[in-house]
Design a protein around this nucleic acid. Structure first.
Lengths: 141, 141
DNA sequence: ATATTTGCAAATCGTTTGCATCACC
DNA sequence: GGTGATGCAAACGATTTGCAAATAT
């Protein structure tokens, strides 16, 4: 399993242990995609993993760049980083709540220009678009 | 005062009252720019405005599109919407935490294309770039 | 073997809610 | 004057922390 190999390598590299709760939480992230942390916590509790453990793992994963935060409709969600899912952004449908991944070479290119203009170094970026998805757009009329 | 006029009009239009706590909270948002809600709550408490009132107002302002949420370094902040501040995005410096506003016509243009490709209608979008600002980039070497 | 991580319980922080009182229209 | 907003207090939900016991290396 490729993703778990990357995961294990990243933990080892940071001198962190690959415990079974950590692995279980990682696997859940792989299965669920973007998820609201309290819901993830709740899910892990059903597998007898304590909420404190889940919160501590999430914090660690974030620090190690294994996950990142995204925002959909004002709510903060976590998802696996680009290392696992490839670079992408999200469209969030205000009506049905669905998330659609996308990527745009044009936008990525524009960012390089923005960084130069501001005189900054970009280490990451995130973009969220919201509106109505194709289906909801049709349904609403 | 232009901004307060827009604010008052928006509340009136929605059939909401222009109370003195609401106005005080709005003024604080004008003064402080992007702010972490618990800090705003704390600040308003020093002006004898109850936390429940601040939370209720923030919720109302969000629903009416007076404010919007942004994310900087995993934290959710609120700021006045485009109606008050003009359209822009943020660069967040990982080292010093400063926020820099920017806008890019090229990115805005790319978004139109993305929407067409996905078949969606865009009602809003937000972009956060993070990395090192000009000063921190220099200081770190 | 031993240093880290976990689970539990309790503390803490952030946010919402019910209800009597007060203020805007 | 009447309806809706506020303040207070209490409840609730999300997150962190201390510490003894369990576990990965």
């Amino acid at each position: 399993m490729q993703k778990e190999t990357i995961f294990a390598g990243r933990l080892r590299q940071a001198g962190e242990r690959i415990s079974s709760p950590r692995l279980a939480i990682f696997r859940m992230l792989v299965r669920k995609g973007p998820i609201y942390v309290p819901r993830l916590v709740e899910t892990m509790e059903r597998s007898a993993i304590d909420s404190a453990t889940t919160y501590r793992s999430i914090k660690l994963f974030r620090e190690l760049g294994i996950i990142r935060d995204i925002v959909a409709g004002g709510k903060r969600l976590v998802e696996l980083s680009d290392d696992y899912e490839g670079h992408h952004h999200h469209f969030w449908c205000r009506r049905c709540g669905s998330l659609i991944d996308f990527d745009s070479a044009a936008i990525e290119k524009s960012l390089v220009r923005v960084a130069a203009d501001l005189g900054v170094t970009i280490s990451s970026h995130q973009l969220e678009i919201s509106g109505l998805c194709a289906r909801c757009r049709t349904d609403s009329q």
